[in-house]
Amino acid sequence: MTTLETPGPRTGRRPRPTPPDYEESIPQRQPDPPIYYALLARWAADGRTLPGRRDPEWSRIASSPVWPGGPLYGN
């Protein structure tokens, strides 16, 4: 048995034409405030993990074997 496919009503919207003098404004990124750099320096001095940098402890844990007997279990 075959069904006859008929085009249904169109859905969606037609794109509106863009005016010729239209320019999309992209906000400029503001520099980070000095307090942010002070906080990063303090965290680094305390040996904490910093945004955008690898966490050595996490890398060590994630690379160890799942079963007991790896470096996390003292073997």
Score class of each variant (00 low, 15 high):
residue 39 L to G: 06
residue 72 L to A: 05
residue 44 A to T: 03
residue 18 T to D: 09
residue 7 P to C: 10
residue 67 W to Y: 12
residue 23 E to C: 07
residue 46 D to G: 03
residue 12 G to P: 01
residue 40 L to K: 09
residue 41 A to S: 08
residue 36 Y to A: 04
residue 26 I to W: 13
residue 30 Q to E: 13
residue 44 A to K: 14
residue 71 P to W: 08
residue 63 S to E: 12
residue 67 W to V: 14
residue 57 E to D: 09
residue 24 E to A: 13
residue 65 P to I: 12
residue 20 P to W: 06
residue 14 R to A: 00
residue 30 Q to D: 06
residue 43 W to D: 12
residue 38 A to L: 08
residue 17 P to Y: 00
residue 28 Q to V: 15
residue 62 A to M: 06
residue 1 M to G: 15
residue 64 S to T: 10
residue 72 L to R: 11
residue 3 T to H: 12
residue 24 E to T: 11
residue 71 P to G: 07
residue 6 T to V: 14
residue 34 P to E: 13
residue 10 R to M: 10
residue 31 P to M: 04
residue 7 P to L: 15
residue 72 L to K: 04
residue 68 P to E: 14
residue 47 G to R: 03
residue 28 Q to I: 13
residue 41 A to G: 10
residue 26 I to D: 12
residue 64 S to R: 05
residue 55 D to L: 00
residue 2 T to F: 14
residue 2 T to D: 15
residue 56 P to A: 05
residue 42 R to E: 15
residue 57 E to I: 05
residue 9 P to D: 15
residue 46 D to N: 06
residue 67 W to S: 12
residue 18 T to Q: 04
residue 12 G to I: 00
residue 66 V to L: 11
residue 57 E to Y: 02
residue 25 S to A: 13
residue 40 L to I: 07
residue 19 P to Y: 07
residue 17 P to Q: 05
residue 8 G to Y: 08
residue 6 T to M: 08
residue 3 T to K: 11
residue 4 L to E: 15
residue 7 P to T: 15
residue 51 P to T: 03
residue 1 M to D: 13
residue 62 A to D: 07
residue 22 Y to R: 10
residue 66 V to H: 11
residue 14 R to Q: 00
residue 65 P to V: 12
residue 23 E to Y: 10
residue 18 T to Y: 01
residue 52 G to W: 02
residue 45 A to Y: 02
residue 73 Y to N: 14
residue 30 Q to H: 04
residue 12 G to L: 01
residue 74 G to H: 10
residue 44 A to Q: 13
residue 54 R to L: 12
residue 12 G to M: 01
residue 23 E to D: 13
residue 44 A to Y: 04
residue 33 P to E: 04
residue 69 G to L: 07
residue 49 T to H: 11
residue 69 G to Y: 07
residue 5 E to S: 08
residue 5 E to I: 10
residue 69 G to F: 06
residue 74 G to Q: 08
residue 41 A to W: 02
residue 47 G to V: 02
residue 70 G to F: 07
residue 62 A to P: 00
residue 25 S to E: 15
residue 26 I to A: 11
residue 55 D to F: 02
residue 36 Y to R: 02
residue 58 W to F: 08
residue 54 R to E: 15
residue 42 R to L: 14
residue 50 L to S: 02
residue 71 P to Y: 03
residue 12 G to H: 00
residue 66 V to S: 12
residue 39 L to N: 07
residue 19 P to R: 12
residue 39 L to W: 07
residue 48 R to I: 01
residue 12 G to Q: 01
residue 22 Y to K: 05
residue 17 P to R: 05
residue 66 V to P: 03
residue 4 L to C: 09
residue 68 P to F: 05
residue 15 P to D: 00
residue 66 V to G: 09
residue 58 W to C: 01
residue 54 R to V: 13
residue 21 D to Q: 10
residue 19 P to F: 06
residue 9 P to C: 04
residue 65 P to H: 08
residue 64 S to A: 12
residue 15 P to G: 00
residue 1 M to C: 10
residue 55 D to W: 02
residue 66 V to F: 11
residue 34 P to T: 04
residue 55 D to G: 03
residue 39 L to S: 09
residue 6 T to C: 06
residue 70 G to R: 03
residue 66 V to K: 11
residue 17 P to L: 03
residue 3 T to S: 13
residue 48 R to A: 10
residue 64 S to F: 01
residue 13 R to H: 04
residue 1 M to K: 09
residue 25 S to G: 10
residue 62 A to E: 05
residue 25 S to C: 06
residue 12 G to R: 02
residue 72 L to P: 03
residue 11 T to Q: 11
